[in-house]
Write a protein that binds this DNA or RNA. Structure first.
Length: 422
RNA sequence: GGUGAGAUGGGUGAGUGGCUUAAACCAGCAGUUUGCUAAACUGCCGUACGGGAUUACCGUACCGGGGGUUCGAAUCCCCCUCUCACCGCCA
């Protein structure tokens, strides 16, 4: 959520910046500015009215004590007309503010200056490429074929147990999952991230805090009996640790990492995009989350990108780093770097990580603040990134490391896996 | 699942209709003083929004959430949510 202060002080800036996201904000911004003005006017009137009532009530108390019944009765009738007026003012003030809020949540976050122009994913900026694309023979297989031949991932069994998009990992396939999770967590904690294991179900307030609710409700699994939501990413519970918190300057930096299964309903999309591990309803992911002072958040972002790159390098996969263009940037992000690995047998790039700075957009909704050197409360900045999402890492590993129908496990992963070949 | 007790500031916790502008203690911050790990004393010490001479000061709201009674509600009434304890069940 953008701050009213910014919208009030520089509406044209907001409109201009949101155009980079191909979002025409003029109409909404102008309405917001008008509603903000009436909000303040209504509050002033209401405050004055309430203040008079309070004074009168105190007077009545004093008159009663002195036994001046008649005067007290007269004052009472004055209060009742004031009370009626304040009820009206309160009603229109509530209505005004509700409307203001409903418009405010429609505005996406402002992209930062680094975000390139562009309308969709085809215009994302490749900022770096690394790793070696393997030379695969003509008999190279896509990962779903390999997984079946080696009997390490059973998609059909998942359908029996739950449904499409809930694979069952077996044998070395299951062990590989565990190995990757442990490796990622170890690398993250070594870099100073505090490991946390959060609940994988959250309440409504947490869903609101990170912005999944109310609009993206349909993307989460909802346990209606208890009104809990299965987390779509560890970002939700981990960031909400700091919901409604005022930090001190010396609490920074805050660096956390968490492994959770992630649950996404994600309707739509057919064919090869959702084949095998490319898109699932349940998958494993290790996440990193940071909370920073505004002046440090971009340095933190660079650090996170370098950190994720380090992990990808250890796996030895061919990768590229993209800076998302305005049109492809998510609603809440100010800037996002995507990591993609090349899946040789499918001949396509698979997204395995997304590292974003949300600046104060999430913090405003979370009411996550800190006290600066002057003792004033300011919104903090939040950032997060995947480090990493497993399924597509596994997909790329299987496809890129295949040799004669077997998988050669990357060096760095072997101590965790306990085997060299599948 | 059953029974009971609760929800007050960063923490503990008082407060059964106006004397609450939420006591007191702890923690925190600033200062004073005393020759040693520290103590004593004094002052400050919530959030949001609005006004404003924009670090002053003033107003309003907030005692889990929502409604109600009343001239006046932390306090009385109703609904909801959550927490804790004990019993039952249980990895």
């Amino acid at each position: 959520m953008l701050t009213l202060k910014l919208l009030r002080e520089d509406p044209e800036f907001v409109i201009k910046k949101l155009a980079v996201k191909h979002f025409d904000a003029r109409e909404i911004v102008e309405k917001i500015v008008a509603l903000d003005k009436s909000r303040r006017e209504l509050q002033q009137k209401l405050d004055l009215c309430l203040s008079e009532q309070k004074q009168k009530a105190a007077q009545i108390g004093a008159l009663m004590k002195e036994g001046k019944k008649a005067e007290a009765e007269a004052a009472k009738s004055e209060v009742s007309s004031l009370k009626e007026r304040s009820k009206e003012l309160e009603a229109s003030s509530d209505k005004n503010n509700e409307e203001l809020m409903s418009l405010l949540v429609l505005l996406p976050n402002i992209p930062c200056d680094l975000v390139p122009e562009g309308k969709d994913s085809s215009e994302n900026l490749v900022v770096k490429m690394g790793g070696q694309t393997p030379e695969l023979g003509p008999d190279a297989l896509p990962h779903w074929e390999l997984a079946k031949q080696l009997d390490i991932i059973d998609f059909d069994l998942g359908v029996k147990l739950t449904g499409a998009g809930f694979p069952v990992y077996k044998g070395k396939g299951a062990r590989l999952q565990r190995a990757l999770i442990n490796m990622f967590l170890d690398i993250n904690t070594a870099a100073g991230y505090l490991e946390v294991e959060p609940p994988v179900m959250v309440n409504e307030a947490s869903g609101f805090g990170t912005g999944q609710l109310p609009d993206k409700e349909g993307q989460m699994y909802h346990a209606t009996l208890d009104n809990f939501y299965l987390v779509p990413t560890a970002e939700v519970p981990v960031t909400n640790i700091y919901r409604d918190v005022i930090l001190n300057e010396n609490d920074f930096p805050i660096k956390m990492t968490a492994y959770t299964p992630c649950f996404r309903r994600e309707a739509g999309s057919y064919g090869k995009d959702v084949r095998g591990l490319n898109r699932l309803h349940q998958f494993d992911k290790v996440e990193i989350v940071r909370i920073e002072k505004p002046e440090n958040s971009y340095a933190a972002l660079d650090e996170m990108v370098a950190h994720v790159e380090g992990i990808v390098n250890r796996l030895g996969l061919p990768y590229r780093i993209l800076r998302l263009c305005g049109g492809d940037l998510s609603f809440t992000s100010a800037i996002t770097y995507d990591f993609e690995v090349y899946s040789a047998a499918q001949g396509r790039w698979l997204e395995i990580s997304s590292v974003s700075n949300f600046e104060s957009y999430q913090a405003n909704r979370l009411k996550l603040r800190y006290r600066d050197a002057d003792g004033k409360t300011q919104l903090a900045h939040t950032l997060n990134g995947s480090s990493l999402a497993l399924p597509r890492v596994v997909a790329a590993l299987l496809e890129d490391c295949q040799k004669d129908g077997h998988i050669i496990i990357p060096e760095a992963l072997r101590p965790y896996a306990g085997f060299d070949v599948i």
